[in-house]
Simulated scan of single mutants.
Amino acid sequence: MEDKELSPQESLDLIQAMISKARKRYSDNGYYFLLWGWITAIASLFHFFTATYTSFEYPFAAWSLTLVGAVLSVIKSNKQKKRAQVTDYTDKLYGWLWLSLGLAMFTIIFNGDRLGWNTVPFILLLAGVGTNVSGAMMGFRPLQFGAVVFWLLSFAAFRVEENYQMLLMATGVAFGYLLPGYLLKKNYSKNAL
């Protein structure tokens, strides 16, 4: 079978079709944004309230939920890979983006003592990068709006004490992960019918 040379319009149509398929796969139903949004919101609020209003010695304990999130993300990702007929370059790029950001966030948190536990501004900054690039890849503006919120809150987080940074983190994920995640889920449900 010989390769057919495509006209410029056919090339554009093929690229557009590939982008549309990729967007649908990425947006799926907003699962990852909802999963990580709720985990982060719960952990942030627990940390804030226990550190501010109780004598509980381990306000960071709720952050162990991130281990559950990591396991659930791996399970979901493996299921999606098994169902996918083809994995293309953009799928890999998207996965590597979030894996890289996750490792960067882990490195920051793991070395938090060296930063005086002032890790939240950096996490917000990196979350903004991930949501902005994800929003651009999907053509989904609410994620890009969420990225701007993350970046503004990162700027503010450098200027408030650690406990109140947790409120900024919860606010960031509300606008950067949860709101876009529910919009993705709504769009997916509407278009899947």
Rank of each mutant, 00 (worst) to 15 (best):
4 K>D: 07
4 K>M: 11
8 P>A: 08
10 E>S: 05
10 E>Q: 15
12 L>E: 10
14 L>N: 13
14 L>V: 11
16 Q>M: 12
16 Q>F: 10
17 A>H: 15
17 A>T: 15
17 A>N: 15
19 I>G: 00
22 A>N: 15
23 R>A: 11
26 Y>D: 09
26 Y>K: 07
29 N>F: 09
29 N>I: 10
30 G>D: 14
32 Y>E: 09
38 W>P: 05
41 A>W: 09
43 A>S: 09
44 S>D: 11
45 L>P: 10
47 H>N: 07
50 T>S: 07
55 S>R: 14
55 S>A: 11
56 F>T: 05
56 F>Y: 14
57 E>Y: 00
57 E>Q: 07
58 Y>S: 09
58 Y>C: 00
59 P>V: 09
61 A>E: 05
61 A>Y: 10
62 A>P: 10
63 W>E: 03
64 S>D: 13
64 S>K: 13
66 T>L: 06
66 T>M: 09
66 T>Y: 14
67 L>K: 06
69 G>Q: 14
70 A>S: 12
71 V>Q: 03
72 L>A: 06
73 S>C: 08
75 I>D: 04
75 I>G: 01
76 K>M: 11
77 S>Q: 07
78 N>Y: 15
79 K>D: 14
80 Q>P: 03
83 R>K: 07
83 R>M: 04
88 D>N: 11
88 D>H: 08
88 D>K: 04
91 D>H: 10
92 K>I: 11
92 K>H: 04
92 K>Y: 04
93 L>E: 03
94 Y>A: 01
95 G>A: 08
95 G>N: 11
96 W>P: 00
96 W>T: 10
96 W>V: 08
97 L>C: 01
97 L>W: 00
100 S>L: 09
101 L>I: 15
101 L>F: 10
101 L>A: 08
102 G>L: 02
105 M>S: 05
107 T>F: 12
108 I>K: 06
108 I>G: 02
110 F>P: 01
111 N>M: 07
113 D>Q: 11
114 R>G: 01
114 R>P: 01
116 G>N: 08
120 V>K: 04
122 F>E: 12
123 I>A: 03
124 L>F: 01
126 L>C: 02
130 G>M: 06
130 G>C: 05
131 T>F: 06
132 N>E: 10
133 V>F: 00
134 S>D: 12
134 S>G: 10
135 G>N: 14
135 G>V: 09
138 M>N: 03
138 M>L: 05
138 M>G: 00
138 M>T: 02
139 G>Q: 14
140 F>V: 07
141 R>G: 00
141 R>P: 00
143 L>A: 04
144 Q>V: 12
144 Q>R: 15
147 A>Y: 07
148 V>T: 09
149 V>R: 02
149 V>E: 03
150 F>K: 07
151 W>D: 01
153 L>Y: 06
155 F>C: 02
155 F>R: 00
156 A>Q: 13
157 A>K: 12
161 E>S: 13
163 N>Q: 14
164 Y>F: 12
164 Y>H: 12
165 Q>G: 06
166 M>G: 00
167 L>I: 14
168 L>R: 09
170 A>E: 09
171 T>I: 01
172 G>C: 02
176 G>F: 08
179 L>S: 02
180 P>N: 09
181 G>C: 12
182 Y>A: 01
183 L>M: 14
184 L>Q: 13
184 L>W: 04
184 L>S: 05
185 K>A: 01
185 K>H: 03
190 K>V: 05
190 K>S: 07
193 L>V: 08
